[in-house]
Design a protein around this nucleic acid. Structure first.
Lengths: 209, 209
DNA sequence: AAACCATTTACATTTATATTGACATTTAAT
DNA sequence: ATTAAATGTCAATATAAATGTAAATGGTTT
């Protein structure tokens, strides 16, 4: 939804529309200023507001070309919104919703994260630091019961602890490798690890401090 | 269960819902006051009650942004989506609004990223790797003309090159420090660097392969 | 009595508007 | 090419309007 215009902005807007319609080109700042009986810089300032509010679009630095934007507004936004749950803990295969979050859900861009039944997991610790996954990040995950070599996955170890690691398939087991030299890779038997999903993205917020 | 509203509070609540739906933004106190035919302070007071009872949520001290909350205490999903532009290039000191050479737009969670006029910047290179910011990530930025010590900022160097670095204020200049040992910090004079914004979040997608 | 509703008044902050003057760029004339 | 005029930009500044907040006060409802 476009922001509404103030009275003054509407006046300038109307004037612009009329001028463009009559002459095919926008008037110069000083011409407009004279007709509107204000200073040229004031006109320039109002044009800035109009551009901010997406009513007009100007091109180039010193050109007078100016487009009047119709209200075509990107309404496709509604289709692009996707709401996924934020999982707190994963225990015994049953994901538990994290209620301490914002209602336990996260809005994200469907265009960026294709797939269905995605979920988000809040990262604890910095074991995947070198993969650009930090403590408190939200990992966007796609549910999966299997994994391919070198993928970053959400794994449940011993039906208890959920962790995010890089997955390696060994001849006789599974290696879950952190991406941080302070942590050591762990090797498990096939029956010790349950793959829960694959990490397909990261969302980090709250970098206020 | 939420506390029930009084008749008056319900009236104001209904009015707010309708206004937010129509205009996408809450009316000013005095506008609301005029339409409800009470004083502006009365509206403010009722808003406080509504916020206490978790029916609405307001942001900032002097901002008009207001969210309608659902029964569960969540922000209504419709209000939680926020669409921000993805800035493609930052060129020659042009102010932000002029650079909207559509790299597209991004939907994100308004609850996670408060603030107005946010924009996104696609990261090139891995100079901020150790801060968990990787190549091709989308940096969520808040427009800012200044920066505080140690903040991660978007800076324009010599009116040409836009970079994301950690900001340090020195006695006689500015240090822009990468977070990657392969890169070296750079020191600039005050007039060589233009702060364009502050990085408040990261969105990473496409970790398919 | 306590919670709620409402008013008036004063105040701080933000946003919009406007001015002036200097400057850089473009355009047109020479 | 040079010059002059027109034009857009920018900075500093100022003012007005809109807006949210707070305090003091009193009425109404429960």
């Amino acid at each position: 939804m476009r922001q509404k215009l103030t009275q003054n902005q509407q006046k300038v807007m109307d004037y612009l529309k009329q001028q463009v319609k009559e002459n095919g080109i926008a008037p110069s700042l000083r011409t407009a200023a004279a007709e509107l009986d204000i200073s040229h810089a004031a006109v320039a300032q109002t044009l800035k507001f109009l551009e901010d509010k997406a009513y007009i679009r100007r091109e180039g630095r010193y050109s007078r070309t100016l487009h009047i934007l119709e209200d075509t507004g990107d309404i496709d936004a509604g289709q692009r919104q996707k709401q996924i749950p934020i999982i707190g803990r994963i225990t015994a295969g049953l994901p538990m919703y994290a209620q301490q979050e914002w209602g336990g859900s996260l809005i994200l861009d469907a265009a960026l994260y294709p797939g269905q039944n995605l979920f988000a997991l809040r990262i604890q610790g910095s074991s995947m630091k070198d993969a650009g996954i930090l403590d408190q990040d939200l990992a966007i995950c796609e549910p999966r019961q299997y994994a391919r070599d070198r993928e970053i996955v959400v794994a449940l170890i011993h039906h208890e602890e959920a962790t995010v690691k890089r997955f390696f398939l060994l001849p006789d087991g599974i290696e879950l490798r952190p991406e941080n030299p302070d942590f050591t890779p762990q090797i498990y038997g096939f029956d010790e690890v349950l793959i829960q999903g694959k990490v397909i993205g990261i969302v980090r917020g709250g970098m206020e401090g």
